[in-house]
Design a protein around this nucleic acid. Structure first.
Ligand code: MN
Ligand code: MN
Ligand code: ZN
Ligand code: ZN
Lengths: 138, 138
DNA sequence: GTTTATGTACAACAATGTTGCAAAAATGCA
DNA sequence: TGCATTTTTGCAACATTGTTGTACATAAAC
């Protein structure tokens, strides 16, 4: 499927209107094929309004288009959600990897191992690995 | 050991000078016995300078007194490090739990399970669980 | 094409974090 | 204790990041 059609479908399936800004943001995610920080998106889409960009990213996060990736740097990073995510049910059960050399944050295919803590009710688990990514370790 | 002596020892062992502000921050951590956000610390130490507080927290983080806990909320949270941490070697290999009800973030005793990813060099792993904490689940 | 719900642009604000620097305090030593 | 040295603080100013209100523009539905 052509990329633009794919993007339109994603937006439609989440009941989000197809607007230039939203298409541009999603197109950038597909083109780069990696997680992106707000700063990177802003640098790419220089002439778009900052407030609008925040609202787009919030809408995407609330509706299962993107997911936020926790990171102690404070810099928020976003990754594309799986097709199965929607407003009610995000599935962020995969691991993330942050490269200490190039700074890239990747979504990994591997699932986070199940953990149970006596007395606690675990609903979600985020595992962030740090080290050297495939390219930087080679 | 008295709390103030303990605090002095921590600072001395990290080659940090013993100042009122630093003692107050550490005393607050020991008194609460839990992780604290910058906001909580600011609210407790109302008349301390904001810049100084940031510098204290940075010094503590760099020298193995506190560790930052990743969280997709963007709110930075700090927890006390183990005695064994120093500037060269932080050990943050325990899991964290964020309660979706009361918002508290706890350091858990449990270690993060070892993970290896082919081609990657994993140096550090952070696992953040979300759900209901012991008090809120009961 | 007209209507209506939704999204955008702009301005203004709020919160969060950083830098430079002079004054103050902590440490080490005579 | 008194003094020199080094580190830390307090303040002002700035930078970055994120939010809110609102009039206008646009997408979707009819
Ligand atoms: Mn991901
Ligand atoms: Mn911890
Ligand atoms: Zn890398
Ligand atoms: Zn709780």
């Amino acid at each position: 499927m052509a990329r633009y059609s794919k993007i339109k479908n994603i937006l439609k399936s989440r009941n989000l209107r197809i607007t230039d800004g939203r298409v541009d943001v999603l197109e950038f995610f597909f083109r780069k094929g990696k997680t992106l920080s707000i700063k990177e998106i802003q640098e790419e889409l220089k002439d778009s309004d900052r407030v609008t960009l925040y609202r787009i990213l919030n809408a995407f996060t609330e509706n299962g288009v993107l997911h936020k990736i926790p990171d102690d740097s404070g810099q928020v990073t976003f990754g594309l959600c799986h097709d199965t995510c929607d407003a009610e049910d995000h599935n962020h059960d995969h691991m993330h990897f942050k490269c200490l050399d190039c700074g890239t944050i990747e979504c990994l295919e591997q699932q986070v191992p199940e953990v149970s803590i006596p007395g606690y009710q675990v609903k979600e688990a985020n595992l962030i690995l740090k080290g050297l990514c495939k390219s930087c370790a080679a």
